[in-house]
């Protein structure tokens, strides 16, 4: 099972995860008594990168309208800042005593903290982006709920005009999201559901048109036509609910990640 939720996050964090593992190994190897080198310059580079990341993070929080992001992201930023401070402390301690065990432990703790904090930060933003996609899906669901009250061609034309841009946006964003996911089953489910929605939508419009035509002729079959229309709207709604459900799934198990 993949550890990182999306390919973008994976590309950023996997190298860090590998380096933290390597650091732990180096620490274990160094327990035979090797001195740690002067880490002032590389630690300073980490601190500078963290300062810039935190700046961008704070600016993201400021400009976002997402209350959950505003609530969750500051903690991730504090985590990264605290981790950078640990690295600085470790570097100072190792300058005084290159064999210091507490300093080495601090170094590993700091590196781990950078990994965890950056991961939290990226996930926080990623979740915010997912919430935006879900809002768009819900807008389509709201339109589908209105389908059964459309009884004239004029209303149908307006319905199609309103629904089409939303549906196009959902299609584009869910498709992009499915390509980003690392979890194969989630990816396949999103693709399958999206294909169903794309297939069903013209059929639904057609069924709504047929209902309106039959209604105009005052035929008995209008009940059947309405049933058919409602069935198709219901099917589309089910697929969208499944898309929303899968979008909210996360890839990794907390314990496995740790």
């Amino acid at each position: 099972m993949p550890v990182f939720h999306t390919k973008t996050i994976e590309s950023i964090l996997e190298p860090v995860a590998q380096q933290v593992s390597r650091l732990v190994i180096l620490h274990e190897e160094a327990e035979d008594g090797n001195a740690m080198p002067d880490l002032e310059k590389p630690v300073l580079a980490v601190s500078r990168a963290v300062v810039n990341l935190v700046k961008v993070g704070r600016s993201t929080i400021e400009s976002s309208e997402d209350s959950l992001l505003k609530q969750d992201m500051p903690a991730a930023l504090l985590r990264v800042e605290a981790a950078a401070r640990l690295l600085e402390e470790a570097s100072s301690m190792l300058k005084v005593d290159p064999y210091s065990q507490p300093a080495r432990k601090k170094l590993i703790e700091g590196a781990r903290g950078i990994l965890q904090g950056t991961s939290s930060l990226l996930l926080c933003f990623d979740e915010s982006e997912v919430r935006k996609i879900i809002r768009e899906c819900k807008t389509v669901l709201d339109y589908l709920a209105v389908a059964e009250v459309i009884e004239t061609m004029e209303d149908l034309i307006q319905f199609v005009k309103d629904l089409s841009p939303c549906l196009t946006k959902v299609s584009r964003e869910v498709d992009h999201r499915s390509q980003e996911l690392t979890h194969q089953v989630h990816r396949e489910t999103l693709t399958r559901c999206l294909d169903s929605v794309k297939t069903l939508s013209p059929i639904l419009i057609c069924s709504m048109k047929i209902f309106i035509q039959i209604l105009r002729q005052h035929c008995r079959e209008s009940d059947e036509a309405a049933e058919n229309r409602n069935y198709l709207a219901g099917r589309m709604s089910d697929e969208l609910h499944e898309i929303i459900r899968v979008l909210q799934l996360t890839t990794y198990d907390e314990d496995e990640w740790d």
């Binding site: 950023i12 580079a45 961008v56 930060l121 933003f125």
Partner: peptide
């Protein structure tokens, strides 16, 4: 929000690269 995401991803990558350099320094020396 591609620009915001791009910004965050770029700076996270820089942090990631700096950690790589740090561990690389330890290993080399």
């Amino acid at each position: 929000d591609p620009p915001a995401w791009q910004d965050l991803a770029t700076h996270s990558k820089k942090v990631s690269d700096s950690i790589k350099s740090l561990v690389g320094s330890i290993k080399d020396k």
